[in-house]
Each structure stands twice: as structure tokens, then as C-alpha cells.
Amino acid sequence: MRFNLRNTLFIGLLVFISLSFVKKLTEPLYFEVPKSWPKPHYNFKDNPLTEEGFLLGRNLFYDPILSRDNTISCASCHLQTTGFTHVDHALSHGIDGKIGTRNSMTLMNLAWSKSFMWDGGVNHLDVQPIAPITSEVEMDETLENVVEKLQKSEKYQILFKKAFGTTKITGQRLLKALSQFELLLVSSNSKYDKVIRNEEKFTEQEQKGYHLFKNNCSSCHNEPLFTSEKFENNGLTIDTTLNDIGRMKITKKPEDYLRFKVPTLRNVQFTFPYMHDGRFKTLTEVIKHYNSLGNSKNVSKQLSKPMNLSDNDRVDLVAFLKTLTDTEFLFNKRFPFPKENYETLTQE
């Protein structure tokens, strides 16, 4: 009897010790798919979301350690309050004040994206950061060197250990952590969403605009993500100072000449300037461009019929587009620069 009791106590002690380790394990995060939205494209099984992974990704996203001279972070061109894009710059600028050839894209609802960049050259969210990190006009750094710099940082040794269980820092872990942060940038609480969920109502003007949107825009800017994920020629003439041929650079197919990714319109009110080269400063200019097309050659077939919008229609359409603004997303306290002090961040 005594022997059995001892054994039971011993096993109990083992279980107790094991349980004390449970507390140290990561806290899984549930990725919520908004009601009636499609299934995300990202395979979460390959990169299970955790609070610790998200926090590591958030720190990396705001850290200029990713660039050659520690001056440029992801957030330099992707600011939260403007839909995670570089507002007010037609072409985004990077290291040493160098200017790129495109307007930075917005970052939201990336779990549903099948390809990345204006030309879709990047095939997976995980590997997207390699492009800006190694671009000589953006961060001009090598992935290998970033990993080396992170390995020397005590803060990141702790953060990687919390997220992945060991202090080992690899390119894979760095990229997966960045994905975790970016995947959780979900914008699904705009006025539009609330109207769809019957929680709010459009004004008469917004309702008219929504009707115009469905007739003229939604064949490419598909609801609820407001993008078809496809590449289209929207009738912009080539800027001869840039000579950006778009999707054709990737596929080498002549039909992809001047085709660019259809961007989402969520939070479009704040993501100006517009188009791949940022040539339009206002939504009115954008709509005027589409209104001026009509019977143009080489333009995607969805744009082949003239829109013929009146001035009033244009105002109504802009009113609708503003209902895609998601203030909760733009000011979500989970996403800005991680101000938590070093102690709380690294405490065991």
C-alpha cells in the first residue's frame, strides 16, 4: 500500500511538473473568418498563429534592423492609419532617399491573397518580405545578414524563443513571424460591412453609390474583398519615365502587357495616391479616368463599355467608397509600433 502511494505521489509530481511547463507554451490565436467571406487562401497549418508569433512579427515589422543601415522598416512604407500604405508619395522611397518604381500596396486581408506585388511576382505571403529587404532602393540588405543581426540581439533571442520554443533564428522563422503579424491585419468592420450585416443603414447617397459600384466596378473589385485577385489593363498609358510593363515582366506573355493586380478598395479613402504608379491624387480623378475610357483598345473587357457617369453619380460613388473605411482597423491597438516596454515584452 505504502509503495503504491509513493508511486502515485511520484506520478502526480511528474504530472504537476509537466503542467508547469504548459504555462510556458505558446498561446494559440484563432483566425476568425468574417461571416459570408470566402475561405482564406493561406495555409495556417504550415504556420499556426500564436500570440507570441504575432508579437514577434509585430516587432520585426516596425524594426529598421531589416535594412542595411538600420533606417528603413516595413512600416516606413506601410503605415497603419493609412491602410498600411505609403500615403502622399506617388512612388515609395526607401534607403538613402532612393525612389522605387511603384506606389506601395496596402496591407490588409492578406490571408485571402493568392499572389503579391503589383505584378503578382511573389507567390506566397511568407516570401514577400524578401523582395523589399533585398531591393537596393528599399532596404538593400540580405536575408542572411538580417538573421545574423537578429541573432546578436538579446531581445530577439527572447522573442524567437517565446514564439518558436528555441532561440534559433532562421530565415524561415523570421518570415513566418512576419506573416503572422500580417495575416491578422484583417479589415472587416467598415460601414459597408455593418450594412451587409444589417447593423447599420446606408444614406440615400451611399445607397445610390453602391448601386453604381455594383454596375460598374464590382466585376473586378469583387465583394467582400473588393478585389478579384486578377491582373487587368485599366487603360492607363505607360509612364515613359518608368516603362513598367506590369504582369508581362513575370509571365513574358504579350497579353499581360500593362496588366497590374486589381487592388482592394477597402480603406481606399486614406490610401491615396492611387494606381500602381500613384498618378492620381484623388478618388474623383480615378473615377474620371474610368469614365473617360469607353471603346479603348487593349483595355480589359470589363472596361470596354463606357461608364457614362454624371457628375452627381461620381459624387455618389465616392460617398459609397468612403463606407469602406474601417476606423477600427486603422486605429486597432493591436497593430501599431509595439510600445510595450522591454520588461513586459521579455518577461517570462
Binding site: M117, G121, V122, N123, H124, V127, I130, A131, I133, T134, S135, T142, L143, E144, V147, T170, G171, Q172, L175, I250
Partner: peptide
């Protein structure tokens, strides 16, 4: 296969 091995393209995946 880690992309730090210098055998991964950036602007076009692969």
C-alpha cells in the same frame, strides 16, 4: 531550402 541560403529570388518567387 531556407531563403537565407542565397538561392532564392526576390522580385519573382522561386
Amino acid at each position: 531550402l531556407d531563403p537565407t541560403k542565397g538561392m532564392y529570388w526576390a522580385w519573382q518567387s522561386g
